[in-house]
Amino acid sequence: MEDSWRDDAPGSGEPDDGPRPRRLLRRLAITVLVLAVPVGGLVWLFQDDLFHPFGDPRACEGSDAPLSGAFGAGGAPLPGDASDVHYYTQNGHTELSFVSSRIPGFLHTAGFVPDDASPFDESYGDDHFALGEDDTELPRGLCGTGVRGPVLTYGSAAASIMVERSPFTTDRFRAPARVIVTYNTP
């Protein structure tokens, strides 16, 4: 009964105002800590999926500039059916990868092959790139899937391109074909 003279003692006749502010703050801090640990773990676990450069899921880690609408290969846009698009930009240099079934039209639009020429004409495309059937190639820094051999390569003063060729015939591309375009940004 020594404490019965204190105002906050039970039975003192005054209404109980609930927990003290210190207890409330302590409980709040513990609750925040308990919730922060699993949330932080989930963010760490899925950080590659949550944080892309420029908020663009197509950008590969380490890219220092976003992809423009028309890229360096003759200012051509990506084909309308382009999928699995990935790019890596570093110091004005861009590596771009995509899959499309509209490769002949893209090669004409981008200026790698004249409109009246076949993309399989040896004077425009080179099939001597050292990449055997089903071997893959992915430039350093570029994420995603590499091109599978055999490939045809095309080049201009502003850009170069590798396109997957059919392993069964020399006058067709894979359907659809993966493309890797390399160019310097102006």
Rank of each mutant, 00 (worst) to 15 (best):
L28D: 10
T153R: 12
G72P: 01
L78C: 04
V181N: 09
Y124C: 06
R172S: 09
E2P: 06
C143T: 12
S12D: 05
D135S: 02
P104N: 09
W5K: 15
V181A: 15
D126G: 07
G18R: 11
I30P: 06
P186V: 02
P57N: 10
A117R: 13
S123Q: 13
D116V: 15
G125K: 08
L138I: 01
S166I: 05
I103F: 00
T31G: 05
Y87G: 04
L131A: 02
E137P: 03
G80W: 03
L138D: 00
S12Y: 11
G146C: 00
G80P: 06
T145D: 06
P114C: 02
G75R: 15
P114G: 00
Y154W: 06
A73N: 10
G11S: 04
P66N: 10
L138V: 01
F54Q: 10
L45F: 05
P10E: 10
A76L: 02
V181H: 11
E133V: 06
T145A: 01
S156Y: 05
T94Q: 02
D135V: 02
D121P: 13
V34A: 04
N91S: 09
M162C: 01
V163S: 02
F71V: 08
H93E: 05
G13V: 12
D17T: 15
L67Q: 03
T109G: 02
R178F: 01
P150M: 07
G146I: 01
F168T: 11
L152F: 06
P167Q: 06
T182M: 13
T136P: 00
L35N: 08
E122Y: 12
E61Y: 04
D116Y: 12
R165W: 00
P21A: 10
G80Y: 04
R172C: 04
L142M: 07
L25P: 08
R174L: 01
D126Q: 10
A36H: 08
G146N: 04
A76R: 07
F173S: 00
Y183A: 11
L42P: 06
V32A: 07
V163P: 03
D115L: 14
Y183V: 14
V43S: 11
G155S: 15
F51H: 09
S166P: 10
A73I: 14
D84V: 08
G13N: 09
L33V: 05
D48H: 12
A130I: 02
R27A: 13
D49G: 07
V181S: 13
G155V: 09
T109W: 04
D8S: 13
P53E: 13
V151C: 01
R22Q: 13
G146H: 00
D115Q: 15
T136Y: 01
D17R: 15
N184I: 01
F129R: 12
G13W: 08
A158T: 14
G125W: 07
E133M: 05
D135P: 03
R165D: 00
